[in-house]
Design a protein around this nucleic acid. Sequence first.
RNA 1: GCGGGAGUAGCACAAUGGAUAGUGCAACGCUCUUCUAAAGCGUAGGUUGUGGGUUCGAGUCCCGCCUCCCGCGCCA
Length: 603
Amino acid sequence: MIPHLLPRGTCLCSEFEMPQTPFYIAHYLDRAITEPASRLFPDGFAADVKPADPRFGDFQANGILPYARRHRVNPREAAHTLLEAADESASWDPAWVTAEIAGPGFINFRFSNAFLLAWLQQYRTESDLRSAAVSLQAGRRAVVDYSAPNTAKQMHVGHIRSTVIGEAVARMLAFSGATVIRDNHIGDWGTQFGILIMAIKETGADPANLGPDPLQALEDLYRKGSALATADPNLQERARHELVLLQQGDPGNTALWEQIRTVSYEGAQEIYDLLGITFDHVHGESFYRDRLDTVYDELVRHGIAQEDDGALVVFHPEHPRFARQPFIIRKRDGASNYATTDLATVLYRVEELAADAIFYVVGAPQSDHFEQLFLTVGKWFEATGRPQPEMRHLSFGTILGEDGKSIRTRSGEPPQLKALLAEAVDRAYALVSDKNPSLTEPERREIARVVGIGAVRYADLAQNRTSDYLFSWERMLSLEGNTAPYLLYAVARIHSIFRKSGIAPGEQEAAATPFESEGEIALARKLVQFPAALEQSLADLRPHLLCTYLFELSGTFSSFYNSDRVIGAETAVESRRLLLCARTLCILETGLHMLGLETLERM
RNA sequence: GCGGGAGUAGCACAAUGGAUAGUGCAACGCUCUUCUAAAGCGUAGGUUGUGGGUUCGAGUCCCGCCUCCCGCGCCA
């Protein structure tokens, strides 16, 4: 339930009746004009309320224009009629929000300074925001499938996007009320094991004793195996056979596979510890192997899959491309592949986890695979009478190096994630030591960790996930522009104000009067846009919209900070400015935490 | 060849079919005896690849063309 604005005439200052302001204000305004509109315009009126350019108002409703066109009426007149009816039914208190018609027929809503203050007095803490936000996705049960490294390989820069975006998406969903199941779907059942097992047997390596960097050793072994297989068709065949043996439960290969898995998990865990990420499931593809026969049987029985050239494949005759481009679910040699395990995984998630939504945070090059997967699941579950989960591929672009090509080290390999994160922390350490040498060594280390890791994560999140992005140390660690250091600096400065004043955030706000200065008003208006930004970001699960909002909020705060002195102002003024600082701090920290960043008290 | 994505200021990027296309770097000015100047303020910078179309309104939707990236039978 969205709480309602006070009806007109209610006393705003009663101690017993705290004024209630809606959290999702756009929803409130939408309903407030949709209700009278449903009487005036019986057929299909959508209010279309969205954040407005601050010059025009706080929110605007654009729905009149398409309506007027459809019904050949004058849009401004229709808007006028609508506003009169809304006014009649006291949809909003004019002391809090005013509406006016502008341009060809926009309805602009503008909040009063009293409203801004009331809103900010109501949503005071991260937990206030959280409890108010949950109405958006309450009851939804969503699996977020992300990170998904392969066993026997170091995580490299290519995994950062899935890991970082997936974590942010999971947090955003959870914040807005969904039950989130974080699932790290590790690639531990594929072709690479055939090659690896073959290589182990050929070279006589001991997977239980791989030296100081066992994961690196495995990766080298894999590379060696690949080279062997490429050079010698017999070994290629041998590798395939080892995989088939493994998938058939051969005890020797299973033991090797267990050892490889253990080494790989431990390696990946280092990264997750560094990023503060915990999964609910780290099942891996292998976990689903006892469901693969169900997949084959049911898809064949319902005529969805067919034999083709020795393999079991699914075609989608209605689709322009997948009518001929197969979805291979069983290879000619009888081995499963990731199409098979992905199908089995959907089955598990729907039957055992009762998921009603599954989000795959995987790179754009795999979009064909997911499109085929979703089509196949649709037919399969339709035929078997299972509930259809919402499935979405949250695809993302490639990370490019400064040369505009897919990022590589000098040796031609993608940079390792561990090394990349370490370099970020080192660079941040150099920066903080330079900018703030008075801090103690341990303080600078801690700041470097938060800023360095945060910079890498934020650089990734701040950009539209669907496009490729250019990796640049200089840019991501800059204190200028839409970067983690800039946002963290804003947070640190607010903490500094409270530290200097000896006041805790949230204290000494009682004397606050409505905002007056340009800086105060701009900041307050920006703060109340937080729910709308969250909602927009959630609509297509695009974290960069939340980033943009937080960056703009930081900028608005910095302007305010430079123009309006907080400490030492006259009591009522100081009080309301402290309130603004406390709320800015709260929303910035809430937002940054939602993106997976830690925040600092000084830097 | 077929299919997908992309092309916005010198550079990196925003912009849910809406109002005068924004932000940050870089450039040029200005502002620290005052809460962190790691900041703020200002100036300049655009035929949104290109040609058509739909619309009251197009960077956004449709069609053609150009350029780049990616995918397309047993890898994940």
